[in-house]
Write a protein that binds this DNA or RNA. Structure first.
Length: 227
DNA sequence: ATATCGATTATCT
DNA sequence: GATAATCGATATG
C-alpha cells in the first residue's frame, strides 16, 4: 500500500512555541516532519503537511549560508529562533527556512517539500499550473522553490517574519498528525559537506523532491563529466 | 528513462 | 567575475 493521504484536520492550527525552535537544527528538522505550514492572507487559508526538510548547522557547516558569517543577508539565521529566513537563488526562486538555536547562534531548517491539505486551487494559481492529474499536483509543492511559489513566499514579504505568530500570516502549526517512517539522506543540491545525512523525509510520501538516483553514483558522474 | 542547459540576480571573493 | 540550499525545458537513448 502506498502513502495514505494525510488526513485534513480542521481544528485551529495553533503555532508551535518559540522554544520548539530554540534547539539544534537536526532536532528541529526531525520534529518538523508532519507539522503544518499555514498561510493566512485575505481571509484565505493555505495549509500543507511538511514532508521534507534539511538541517543547516551554522557557522561550522560549510554548506550553510551562515558559514559566511553574520551578514545583512544571513542576519535572521543568527537572530532568535522561529523566524523566517527567505533567500533568493539562481535568479529565479525563493526558499524558506526557519531560524533555530538561541539568539546569537546560527542554524536553520530549509523547507523542501510539503503536501497540500487546503487551498490547492490557490496554490495552482500561484504556480501557474493547471492541475489535471496527480503529476501536476505533486509539482505544486515538491521542491523548495515550488512550495515557496505556491505559498506566495518572497523575501520582501516574509524574510524576518515570525513563524510562531499568526499575526505574520505565515506560521507552523500542529494538527496532531503523528509522523511515521522518518528517514535521513544526504542534502540535495549542495557541493560542500555533501556526505552528511541532514535531509529528513517522510519516506514513501509522494511529494518528496529530488531524484531517486543513489547520491554517491550521481556525485561521481557529475565529477567525471567533460574532462 | 536520464542528461544537460539556460534563466537571472544577490552575494561573496 | 564566479557561484548558488532550483526549476523547467530540451535533447537523446
Amino acid at each position: 500500500m502506498g502513502t495514505p493521504p494525510s488526513k485534513v484536520n480542521r481544528e485551529k492550527f495553533q503555532p508551535l512555541h518559540r522554544a520548539f525552535f530554540a534547539r539544534g537544527p537536526r532536532r528541529v528538522a526531525r520534529e518538523l516532519l508532519g507539522k503544518v505550514l499555514v498561510r493566512h492572507s485575505d481571509g484565505q487559508f493555505l495549509t500543507a503537511r511538511i514532508v521534507e526538510v534539511e538541517a543547516y548547522l551554522g557557522k561550522n557547516d560549510p554548506a550553510s549560508h551562515s558559514a559566511a558569517g553574520n551578514t545583512a543577508r544571513t542576519a535572521v539565521l543568527f537572530g532568535p529562533p522561529g523566524y523566517a529566513y527567505v533567500y533568493f537563488i539562481y535568479g529565479n526562486h525563493y526558499c524558506l527556512n526557519v531560524s533555530c538555536e538561541r539568539d546569537g547562534r546560527a542554524g536553520g531548517v530549509l523547507f523542501r517539500a510539503v503536501e497540500p491539505l487546503r487551498g490547492v486551487e490557490e496554490m495552482a494559481q500561484a504556480r501557474k499550473i493547471e492541475v489535471r492529474g496527480p503529476r501536476d499536483l505533486i509539482r505544486l509543492t515538491s521542491g523548495p522553490g515550488r512550495l515557496a511559489e505556491a505559498f506566495g513566499i518572497t523575501r520582501t514579504r516574509d524574510n524576518g517574519g515570525d513563524l510562531t505568530s499568526t499575526h505574520s500570516g505565515l506560521w507552523i502549526g500542529d494538527d496532531g498528525f503523528h509522523a511515521r517512517n522518518i528517514k535521513t539522506t544526504p542534502r540535495i543540491g549542495i557541493s560542500k559537506a555533501a556526505d552528511k545525512r541532514l535531509r529528513y523525509i517522510l519516506a514513501g510520501n509522494a511529494f518528496l523532491s529530488g531524484r531517486k538516483t543513489p547520491p554517491e553514483t550521481r556525485a561521481r558522474l557529475k565529477f567525471d563529466k567533460r574532462v
